[in-house]
């Protein structure tokens, strides 16, 4: 495919800039629905946090702050690498782009691994809602509610990250096969928006669940 063909503007757009803006707008509208979706979970958590404040603070102390903090740093770093990948892609440097995308994806996988390890630890300590829930301290029901919300919020986030990892894999394949095509720039930017958004959601999950329990 030649360069002139590749930068063709689709017929419904006036120019490449408008085409690019439309792609960004579409992704932002999708992210808006995602924000509403996670917003509902956050609102539910906030209401119960206010209502059962003592139980939720007690429950939060059972989460692993070290693993949560490491995971937050991992996601922030992956977002940084993704944003560098967009810059190197724009500069038409295929090697660095592939390395950066690969590293960002790897960090996403490491995040999921640590999260899985944390889930396993919660399960062993009897904190996983269901038959395995064996917490017998005070405020049993409200502590259970905290862990239900915790597994819903972090589970949905992990699912989004998993989708992001697969999307990045597709993107890497696109870069390997047709990195020179100019209008692929939009694809990497739009995938990047999704990746950063998943990071953005975690930026709020982490303090709400891990930090508000207090020392």
């Amino acid at each position: 495919m030649s360069e002139s063909q590749s930068i063709a503007v689709h017929e419904q757009f006036d120019d490449l800039a408008q085409q690019r803006e439309s792609a960004h707008l579409g992704m932002w509208l999708f992210l808006g629905t995602e924000l509403m979706f996670f917003g509902g979970v956050f609102l539910g958590f906030t209401v119960y946090r206010v209502t059962y404040s003592r139980a939720f603070m007690e429950a939060a102390r059972h989460l692993d702050l070290v693993m949560g903090s490491i995971n937050t740093y991992i996601l922030l770093t992956s977002s940084f690498l993704y944003s560098l990948a967009i810059s190197t892609f724009r500069a038409r440097r295929r090697g660095p782009t592939l390395v950066l995308l690969g590293l960002a994806m790897l960090l996403g996988i490491i995040f999921l691994g640590i999260k899985g390890f944390e889930y396993h630890k919660d399960w062993r300590h009897g904190l996983m809602p269901g038959p395995a829930f064996t917490y017998h301290g005070p405020d049993h029901d409200h502590v259970l509610l905290f862990f239900v919300l915790y597994f819903i919020a972090t589970g949905l986030h992990a699912l989004h990250l998993l989708i992001g990892v697969f999307a990045t894999l597709v993107l890497i394949a696109l870069v390997v096969r047709s990195w020179f095509i100019k209008d692929r720039e939009v694809a990497i930017e739009v995938f990047g928006l999704y990746w950063h958004f998943v990071d953005f959601i975690w930026i709020f999950i982490f303090p709400l669940f891990y930090l508000l329990g207090g020392p």
């Binding site: 932002w28 992210l31 509403m36 917003g39 509902g40 609102l43 206010v50």
Partner: peptide, 21 residues
């Protein structure tokens, strides 16, 4: 246009939180 699209999501989220809380 992108500013408005991104900002609108947060505006709706703000309404959701303000009314519920």
């Amino acid at each position: 246009l992108i500013w408005v699209a991104a900002g609108a999501s947060f505006l709706w989220l703000g309404i959701l939180f303000t009314l519920a809380l």
